[in-house]
């Protein structure tokens, strides 16, 4: 298993009140698997995905990512787990506006201290259908194209797990379907584990597994 979590809890303190954003979730994700997390706003989707992608640490529970136990790790230790293992796709694309498509895609390599290879970048851009947009700035792209750039950026370092928080949230239906199709292709061909959150039950049904959260608990799992 690439990700295994048991009894995951994430509590926040808001004044005197303890907010139970996640309240005892068990989860396991294997390579080549697409898992969709569904649920209404405030159900704990983003909290769960933050824990599973090592952006945050659980208050309680055990969590293993790519064979490393991450419970209780500091931020500096979590970043070491993330590096080269996890790729991220965000709802608002989160591209750097001053960088071209190629530069955005190659950005993670800078932080990993790796050399950018033009052939690899070109291959990834081709895989996401953006070869002709390599020199463009984000403002010159459509929403769907920007999300494809974000996916290419997530893939450039060869991660084992792709984490996508509402990847189709800002896209129209047709473009959203194309992105989901791309995810399926990546899982099938690259053996990537893909973990995504969505409000869209149609997209959720296309995943290998679906987990529905409510009030920080799993209420349904396919």
């Amino acid at each position: 298993m690439l990700i295994e979590g048991f009894g995951l809890k994430r509590y926040y303190q808001r004044g005197s009140e303890t907010v139970k954003a996640l309240d005892g979730v068990d989860i396991a994700i294997d390579a080549g698997e697409i898992v969709a997390i569904l649920g209404p706003s405030g159900s704990g989707k983003t909290t769960l995905i933050n824990l599973l992608s090592c952006l945050d640490a659980p208050t309680e529970g055990t969590l293993t990512v790519a064979g490393k136990s991450v419970a209780g790790l500091s931020e500096d230790e979590l970043v070491e787990v993330r590096r080269g293992v996890l790729g991220f796709v965000f709802q608002d694309f989160s591209l750097l506006p001053t960088l071209t498509v190629t530069e955005n895609v190659e950005l993670p390599l800078l932080f990993l201290g790796l050399k950018a290879e033009a052939s690899r970048t070109a291959a990834i851009l081709e895989a996401v259908g953006l070869t002709d947009r390599a020199g463009h700035l984000p403002r010159e792209l459509s929403g769907g194209q920007m999300q494809r750039v974000a996916i290419a950026r997530a893939l450039i370092s060869g991660p084992k797990i792709l984490v996508a928080d509402e990847p189709t949230g800002n896209l129209d239906k047709k473009t959203g379907e194309a992105i989901i199709a791309l995810f399926k292709k990546l899982a099938r061909e690259e053996g990537l584990a893909i973990l995504l959150t969505t409000h869209n039950t149609v997209f959720g049904e296309q995943a290998d597994r679906t987990i529905v959260l409510e009030d920080g608990r799993v209420v349904w799992e396919s």
């Binding site: 992608s53 952006l55 931020e75 500096d76 970043v79 993330r82 590096r83 080269g84 991220f88 965000f90 989160s94 750097l96 950005l107 993670p108 800078l110 932080f111 990993l112 950026r153 370092s157």
Partner: peptide, 16 residues
Amino acid sequence: TSEIGIMKALGARRDS
């Protein structure tokens, strides 16, 4: 702020 968070998510260490 958001961009810095994204960069850290993409693998940037504190020193980067």
